[in-house]
Amino acid sequence: MAVTCRAQPSIFRSSYGKQYPSPMDKHVMAVETVEEKTDLSTGIVYRRRIATCKNVIPEILRKVSALKVPDIYLEEESWLNMQKRNMSMKTHCLTWTQYASLSEESVFRESLENPNWTDFTQKGRISVTGAGLLNRVLEAFAQSFLKQGVKKGIKIMETLLQEQCG
């Protein structure tokens, strides 16, 4: 699934930093920056953050002991290049790595149509391989939840942008 939207670069960056945690999404409980550094030769700012999210897997599927965890942890890495006016991000799940792979890639870059705007593209992938007969059920649930999460994330971003832009 891929999504694209536009906003002014400075507004987009400041809004993205405020996106989570937020009362608009009760599933993301905390986001902690665990590493941040700037490459002095290129000016690229690298950030690594860990998000703590509520486990939203339905109770019926939590009968599987590995799925009974209270929280899910996601790692987000981002590279901000102010000279080229772009930012790329990669997010992956740190929980259940032996059973599933969940990743998301986002790119913010200067629009070809108008250099004062930013194009935002987001792609996500899910693969469940270590849960035996539940692979397909869990993968279908995860894909559905990811699609809902992307829509909710865009709605939150739109709300924050409207608040900043008026």
Rank of each mutant, 00 (worst) to 15 (best):
89 M>G: 05
23 P>W: 06
59 E>G: 06
61 L>S: 10
33 T>P: 09
77 E>C: 13
103 S>Y: 09
96 W>N: 04
63 K>H: 11
20 Y>C: 07
16 Y>G: 03
32 E>Q: 13
43 G>M: 00
144 S>P: 01
141 F>P: 03
8 Q>P: 12
60 I>C: 14
112 L>E: 14
2 A>P: 03
96 W>S: 13
134 L>V: 02
110 E>A: 03
159 T>Q: 12
72 I>P: 06
138 L>P: 05
129 T>C: 09
118 T>K: 03
123 K>I: 02
120 F>E: 00
94 L>I: 07
87 M>L: 13
51 A>D: 14
11 I>N: 00
57 I>F: 15
128 V>T: 06
4 T>K: 11
52 T>A: 09
118 T>W: 02
3 V>F: 08
133 L>P: 08
127 S>E: 07
152 K>S: 10
155 K>M: 11
8 Q>N: 05
65 S>F: 09
145 F>G: 00
45 V>A: 02
109 R>W: 00
93 C>D: 10
137 V>K: 13
107 V>L: 15
10 S>I: 05
156 I>N: 12
110 E>G: 01
47 R>S: 14
14 S>K: 13
8 Q>C: 04
131 A>T: 00
60 I>L: 14
19 Q>C: 03
20 Y>L: 08
101 S>P: 00
61 L>D: 11
12 F>G: 01
158 E>D: 15
27 H>N: 11
23 P>I: 00
147 K>H: 10
17 G>K: 09
9 P>F: 10
93 C>W: 03
31 V>F: 01
114 N>C: 05
130 G>T: 02
70 P>D: 12
47 R>V: 12
46 Y>A: 05
76 E>C: 11
62 R>V: 09
18 K>C: 09
81 N>Y: 02
2 A>R: 13
155 K>G: 07
121 T>P: 01
85 R>L: 14
16 Y>I: 03
65 S>Q: 13
141 F>T: 02
65 S>K: 15
135 N>M: 06
41 S>W: 01
10 S>Y: 06
46 Y>D: 03
52 T>N: 07
148 Q>H: 10
33 T>A: 11
145 F>R: 02
133 L>V: 08
71 D>P: 03
100 A>Q: 12
66 A>Q: 15
134 L>Q: 07
131 A>E: 03
66 A>K: 15
60 I>T: 14
6 R>D: 10
106 S>Q: 15
153 G>Q: 12
